[in-house]
């Protein structure tokens, strides 16, 4: 293999094209690097940091780092696994993730990556922040509790739906998603059930109404196979129209 356009990932030669990040080249080569805020359809965001790898002795986000010939990339050592586990634990204690009471459970990317990493507990002290639920939209419920601020809905709404319904506002623990509507409620926004923004959410934050717990336990996306085999939530989610659609807000 021509080493001028390959780098090494866990000892394997990975070919890359000009402009590729490590993530781009790895995904194309069928190598899984855990990630949450990355979706190959959108410009990288580099915010969840879960795709951290060790490149020539430094920790880097593989979704934003351009691939270079001869790089030595570690994606599987215990040190990297531990770093990712800590990042996941921070995400879990920053929100309110009550998986047994969440309709996304079993098909949630945050959970699936945590299973893949082998996270057995959130370990840190929980913030238990007080977060609201916005049920003003006829077809969609928004749970601030479960939003991990990955920015995928922001990018999808802006770049694909051309509506810019979502933005991230505030700082630190007070950061939250805000909606572009006269009263700040999701119901008054231009969001529609079939929007790309609804499809890309990796967790149970943007949820369809009237469709909860449709898939039996045991048949859900990540019940039997890990995310490294199954792939991302977005690759599987094509929202169907909900049964009841009350268009009263229009």
């Amino acid at each position: 293999m021509n080493t001028e356009n390959t780098f090494r990932l866990d000892g394997k030669d990975i070919p890359f094209k000009k402009g590729d990040t490590i993530m781009d080249a790895a995904l194309r080569a069928g190598e899984y690097i855990p990630h949450l805020c990355h979706n190959p359809e959108f410009k990288p965001h580099g915010s969840c940091r879960l795709c951290v790898v060790d490149v020539n002795g430094r920790h880097q986000a593989s979704c934003t780092l351009p691939a270079e010939a001869g790089m030595e990339v570690d994606n599987s050592s215990d040190a990297i696994r531990q770093r990712r586990e800590l990042l996941l634990q921070m995400l879990f204690v920053e929100g309110n993730h009550t998986c047994p009471a969440c309709e996304k459970s079993g098909a949630c990317q945050l959970q699936a990556v945590a299973y893949y990493i082998g996270m057995l507990s959130p370990h840190l002290t929980h913030f238990f922040p007080k977060r609201s639920i916005d049920a003003s939209h006829p077809d969609i419920v928004f749970y601030h509790n479960r939003c991990i601020l990955c920015g995928l809905c922001v990018r999808a709404s802006e770049q694909v739906d051309r509506k810019s319904v979502f933005a991230i506002s505030g700082r630190g623990i007070d950061s939250k998603l805000v909606f572009n509507s006269p009263d700040g409620k999701l119901g008054g926004s231009e969001l529609e059930f079939t929007d790309k923004a609804v499809e890309v959410c990796p967790v149970g934050a943007i949820m369809p109404k009237h469709l909860g717990y449709e898939t039996p336990v045991g048949q859900r996306l990540y019940d039997t196979k890990p995310i490294s085999v199954v792939g991302d939530v977005a690759a599987h989610s094509k929202p169907e129209k909900p049964f009841i659609s009350d268009k009263s807000h229009e």
């Binding site: 309110n96 009550t98 998986c99 009471a101 057995l120 507990s121 238990f128």
Partner: peptide, 18 residues
């Protein structure tokens, strides 16, 4: 040993923390 969701992260009862 912390056994189960409630011991591990508060679980459903911790929903009252809201």
């Amino acid at each position: 040993v912390a056994v189960g969701a409630c011991a591990v992260n508060g679980g459903v009862p911790a929903m009252r923390n809201q």
